[in-house]
Write a protein that binds this DNA or RNA. Structure first.
Length: 500
RNA sequence: GGGCCGAUAGCUCAAUUGGCAGAGCAGCAGACUCUUAAUCUGCGGGUUGUAGGUUCGAUUCCUACUCGGCUCACCA
């Protein structure tokens, strides 16, 4: 947004500002010494009866943005917001200095002020600061959205998030949930001996996931760099280095479509635990999610759209081929077997019958997972560990000891989308090299999201990586579920938008 | 990228068959010493997303474009 045309309202607000200046007031003062936040006042005295407040008057100094002015000549009310809570201030001409009352007369909806006074309850039992002093703190020169309907235009809410936060308390609530989610995860992992680290965001090889990267360039080194699509290979190098429990919460970047579940930059928790396998991580994840839900949303059951989602452990386990097999059987009215899904030829035929497009380059496992995603994904509302993925869609996972076509991997679905992905980590350098080579073949076959060869990573494995399991958790999506937000843009403060 | 929908005052929304572009809040002037979506009286406020076209006349119909939403495709 560039300059806004000077409407009559803006002219008026500027005039009010100049009039304050003419009174000798510093209209952009340095500071205000508040003794309490509005939120703290409401929390502390929201239930205190009026008689108690009257018997022992409580003095306070609080500041905030004006979100309401009700004027009755000599008796006036201001609604003061600190972004979390609101409290009203009672401004009486004969209760505060004349100069301060003159300030009041020049206030506009949206201005920042500080109020000094004592707390009482009005006849209508409203908790109120009876002002004995009023300090002007900053001017709102542009008219804010309306007090009653707030701001509903989604484009403006995303582009000018600050307006959304000013007038829509629910929006603020979402980002408080988000903050608590991250805090709860940190506490959970640190309490279990995990070390938080930061690994490169700019990488010479964008590995650890199958996705198109953003490309950038380092001038001094004259080298191509990729914004990371995952921290995985660096965190696993750290397990080679002996950091047995490690995690990172940070941004990933993927150069792909935008949707209600995809933003080009998104926040991911990734953690690795040595000596554990994917079964251990399922237990860890259930425990963690239940705790995070309690701490961030206040309960293990949350409302998500028309659903109630329970994050109480344990979560359902559903082997991928079993889910795909059952769904395909239902859809086609025939008995589909797991063996069908393991056969390239029969799986391809099934996909054809189901109307799922496949390419010649797709191996059987890829087709099975396509069938699963198309038929099952939307129905996975309650937390479900989809487990035992085909090997050829999982280049970094360890195979099951008795079934080399299957890896020890799970994805956690809830609310109808994927929230986490984990596996027993492939730590055999020879097998890892073979998997990378298979990926290179896919790339040659036209799959530009296939994993690149990473010799440096192979070398790290050759030094010996302990048995370990690792997991990535999409923080944004988890927050969506825990804050009942239908779009990922609702949980990202400044989602990517085309410039206007 | 495809499909559908949307864009009107600062905000939230109307506008009949194509016929003077309106309301509430916000703003301005005034009244009011406990209101809370305060109330009451009066007043101002518009390049109807952009560019074209059809028409005596376009917010309305048509075309293109911009931005956005949903959705499909895509998406470890």
């Amino acid at each position: 947004m560039s300059t806004v045309q000077e409407s009559d309202q803006v002219v008026q607000r500027r005039a009010n500002l100049e009039e304050l200046r003419a009174l000798g007031i510093d209209v952009y003062p340095r500071k205000f010494d508040a003794t309490d936040t509005v939120d703290a006042l409401v929390a502390a005295h929201g239930e205190t009866p009026g008689e108690v407040l009257e018997a022992t008057p409580i003095a306070t100094r609080a500041a905030g943005r004006i979100l309401g002015i009700r004027s009755f000549g000599k008796a006036n009310f201001l609604v003061l917001s600190d972004g979390r809570a609101r409290i009203q201030a009672y401004i009486r001409a004969d209760s505060l200095p004349e100069a301060d009352f003159r300030i009041f007369k020049l206030l506009d909806f949206g201005d920042w002020v500080g109020v000094e006074g004592t707390i009482f309850r009005t006849r209508t039992n409203e908790l109120t600061i009876k002002a004995s002093g009023l300090t002007f703190l900053s001017k709102c020169l542009l008219p804010l959205p309306e007090k009653w309907h707030g701001l509903t235009d989604v484009e403006t809410r995303y582009r000018q998030r600050y307006l959304d936060l000013v007038v829509n308390p629910d929006s603020r609530r979402v980002f408080e949930v988000r903050s608590r989610v991250v805090t709860a995860i940190r506490e959970f992992l640190i309490a279990r001996g995990f070390l938080e680290v930061e690994t490169p965001m700019m990488q010479a090889i964008a590995g650890g996931a199958l996705a198109r990267p953003f490309v950038t360039h380092h001038n001094a080194l004259d080298m191509r760099l990729y914004m990371r699509i995952a921290p995985e290979l660096y965190l696993k190098r750290l397990t080679v280095g002996g950091i047995e429990r490690v995690f990172e919460i940070n941004r990933n970047f993927r150069n792909e479509g935008i949707s209600t579940q995809h933003n080009p930059e998104f926040t991911m928790l990734e953690f690795y635990q040595a000596y554990a396998d994917y079964n251990d991580l399922m237990v860890l994840t259930e425990t963690m999610f239940a705790e995070v839900a309690r701490k961030a949303a206040g309960a293990e059951e949350v409302t998500f759209g028309e659903h109630t989602i329970s994050l109480r452990a344990p979560f359902r386990r559903l082997p991928l081929r079993e889910g795909a097999r059952a769904a395909a059987s239902r859809r086609l009215g025939i008995e589909v077997t797991e063996a069908d899904l393991r056969s390239r030829e029969r799986a391809a035929a099934l996909a054809g019958q189901l109307g799922i497009e496949i390419t010649d380059a797709m191996p059987a496992g890829k087709i099975a997972s396509e069938i699963f995603e198309r038929l099952c994904e939307d129905e996975l509302v309650q937390p479900t560990f989809v487990c035992d993925f085909p090997t050829d869609v999982s280049p970094l996972s360890k195979q099951k000891p008795d079934d080399p076509e299957t890896v020890e991997r799970f994805e956690l679905y809830m609310g109808g989308f994927e929230v986490a992905n984990a596996f027993s980590e492939l730590n055999d350098p020879v097998e890892q090299r073979r998997r990378f080579e298979a990926q290179l073949a896919n790339r040659a076959g036209g799959d530009d999201e296939a994993h690149a060869m990473d010799d440096d990573y192979i070398r790290a494995l050759e030094f010996g990586m302990p048995p370990a399991a690792g997991e990535g958790v999409g923080i944004d999506r988890l927050v969506m579920v825990l804050s009942n937000s239908p779009s990922i843009r609702d949980v990202i403060l400044f989602p990517l938008m085309r410039p206007r």
